[in-house]
């Protein structure tokens, strides 16, 4: 169905169809249920039948999973009350049924029109994710578009066991424009695509260990990436949290004063910056030794 179309060019529903085994996806709360945002309607903003999130269950390589994809084109994939409730419910169902949960992310975070509901929903979803992790139920986030994972959804993605990224994907808390507004254009130029991708893009996130896999921008590569993590989980314990904190302190010490993202790549073992910039997915990974 997708042919040569790149994963980041697909819509949320196309992504789900391309990832799941043929005909295996069953949507929960589908569009005919018309669960739309009451807040957007009050503000005179168009609503969407799925409120920007498609959820359901499916199979990947024969294994049952819960699967969700955010619709980035609808208010930036942002999380409102309905969208958030669907997200929370899906991870709770994953914990209840001990079935892995995969979230294809495309979101700038909380939807400001319904901010409090969105914030609460993200916090509740994080709790559900940790419920899954306590039960060793794999939780996997896929970040493959330039809308990426920012704000509350950026944080939420890092709560999952594993993150799969493509070079198009971006991960962060404050988006580039927000950083520029606060720090000034001299400190961070959000129009400088090379700078933006080398600070928040998939390649850098993979080098730093924030992404667990860097894959090609195709549905097949993303699906293979997901398959590799389906039987695994990463335990949460006081020891693991403390050692992660130490790693982050080291990273801050090492790179805190760096203004050139190439210096970060170099110190992570990338010898030829130009070749690495042009390489993609596993070829990039082969050019660098990864620090985690």
């Amino acid at each position: 169905m997708t042919g040569a179309i790149l994963f980041h060019e697909l819509t949320a529903r196309q992504r789900i169809a391309a990832l799941a085994d043929a005909g295996s996806f069953t949507e929960l709360l589908p569009p005919p249920e018309r669960l739309t945002s009451p807040y957007l309607a009050q503000l005179g903003i168009p609503v969407s039948f799925d409120d920007g999130l498609v959820i359901g269950h499916a199979r990947i390589g024969g294994k049952k999973i819960y699967l969700a994809a955010q619709v980035g084109q609808f208010v930036g994939g942002a999380v409102g009350e309905i969208h958030g409730a669907k997200l929370t419910g899906l991870f709770k169902a994953a914990a209840r049924d001990k079935v892995p949960c995969v979230l294809v992310i495309e979101s700038g975070g909380v939807r400001l029109h319904e901010g409090s509901s969105g914030e609460i929903a993200i916090a509740e979803t994080m709790r559900a994710i940790f419920e899954c992790r306590a039960l060793k139920v794999p939780t996997i986030a896929v970040i493959a578009t330039d809308i990426g994972a920012f704000g509350g959804i950026g944080i939420l993605s890092t709560c999952c066991d594993f993150r799969i990224m493509t070079e198009h994907g971006r991960l962060g808390i404050s988006g580039p424009i927000v950083i520029e507004k606060w720090m000034g254009k001299k400190a961070y130029d959000s129009a400088n695509r090379a700078l933006v991708w080398k600070t928040s893009g998939g390649k850098t996130k993979y080098l730093l260990g924030d992404a667990d896999a860097l894959v090609h921008d195709t549905a097949d590569a993303v699906r293979d990436g997901i398959s590799k993590f389906l039987g695994k989980s990463s335990a949460v314990s006081l020891t693991s949290v403390k050692s992660r904190q130490k790693e982050l302190e080291k990273r801050l010490k090492k790179f805190g004063a760096t203004s050139d993202p190439n210096a970060v790549w170099k110190s992570m073992g990338v010898r030829d910056i130009e070749a690495a910039s042009l390489a993609s997915g596993p070829e990039f990974a082969a050019l660098a030794k990864r620090g985690k």
């Binding site: 819509t11 949320a12 168009p46 969407s48 084109q73 609808f74």
Partner: peptide, 8 residues
Amino acid sequence: WALAGVVG
């Protein structure tokens, strides 16, 4: 039922 397009 069937759905086409995205609200954007």
